[in-house]
Design a protein around this nucleic acid. Structure first.
Lengths: 108, 108
DNA sequence: CTCATGTATTCGGATGTGCGAGTACATACA
DNA sequence: TGTATGTACTCGCACATCCGAATACATGAG
C-alpha cells in the first residue's frame, strides 16, 4: 500500500466528514462513545428500526470510524478511536459560537 | 430566537459535517484559511469553473462556516471562525491513525 | 435438523447533490 | 448610459442517499 496522495487524503477526509453528516449517525457515534453495543441495543436506544441502524453502521464501518466484533449471535460495535468524540465535541463548541454570532446579528 | 433543542443541535451539527463532506469544499476552506479570497481567485487557485466554486461557497455560507463581504465589484469570502481549520487538521491526524491501523491489519 | 434470535441485504420510491453550459444580475468606471 | 468585470442563478442530467417494508443470511440452542 503506497502512501496516499494529497488528493486521496482529501477524499478520505471528505468521506469521514460525510459519514458524520447525518443526525442519526452522530447519535450512533455518541451512543457508542458511551459504551459499545450490539445492533439491536442501538436500535432500541435510538428508537429506530434495526435495518436503518444496520445501514448507518455500514457507512460508519466503511469510513473506518467504528469496528465490529461478533459475540455469539450478536455483533458488537465500538469506536475504533475515541478521539472522534473529542472532534465532534469541538465542532459542537464551534457550532455554538457560530449560532451566537448569528443571533448577535439578528438581535438589535 | 429560542435555544435549539438537542435534536436541532444534532441537525445543525450534521449540516456542518455535510458541508465538510466534499473534497472541493475542504480545499476551499483550506484556501480561505490561508487568506480570504474572492470567487474568481478561488476558481483559479483550485483550477475549477467559477460557477462550481460559487455553488460550493453557497453551501459553506449556509452552514455558517464562511462569510462574504463585497469589495468593489468582487465578493471576498473568509472563514467566520478559524477554529474550523484546527478541527479539520485534527480530523486529518485521526485519519492518518486510522489508515495506519488498517495497514497494520493488512501487513503480515 | 429445526427453531429462535440477531444481523445484513434487497427493493422501490422520494429526495438530494454535483456538474457543465449557458445566462442573468450586480458593480464600477468611462 | 454603455461596457467590462465579477458573481450568482437556472436548466437538464447523472448519480448518490435516505427510508420503510420485506426478506435473506448467520449463529447458537434444543
Amino acid at each position: 500500500m503506497t502512501l496516499p496522495t494529497l488528493d486521496e487524503l482529501n477524499l478520505l477526509h471528505a468521506n469521514i466528514c460525510q459519514a458524520l453528516g447525518d443526525p442519526k449517525r452522530l447519535q450512533i457515534l455518541y451512543a457508542l462513545g458511551a459504551q459499545p453495543r450490539h445492533v439491536t441495543a442501538l436500535a432500541e436506544a435510538l428508537s429506530t428500526p434495526q435495518p436503518t441502524i444496520s445501514r448507518h453502521l455500514r457507512v460508519l464501518r466503511h469510513s473506518g470510524l467504528v469496528g465490529s466484533e461478533r459475540q455469539g449471535p450478536a455483533v458488537v460495535y465500538a469506536l475504533v478511536d475515541r478521539n472522534i468524540i473529542a472532534v465532534m465535541d469541538t465542532m459542537r463548541v464551534l457550532l455554538r459560537k457560530l449560532l451566537d454570532q448569528q443571533s448577535d446579528v439578528m438581535a438589535p
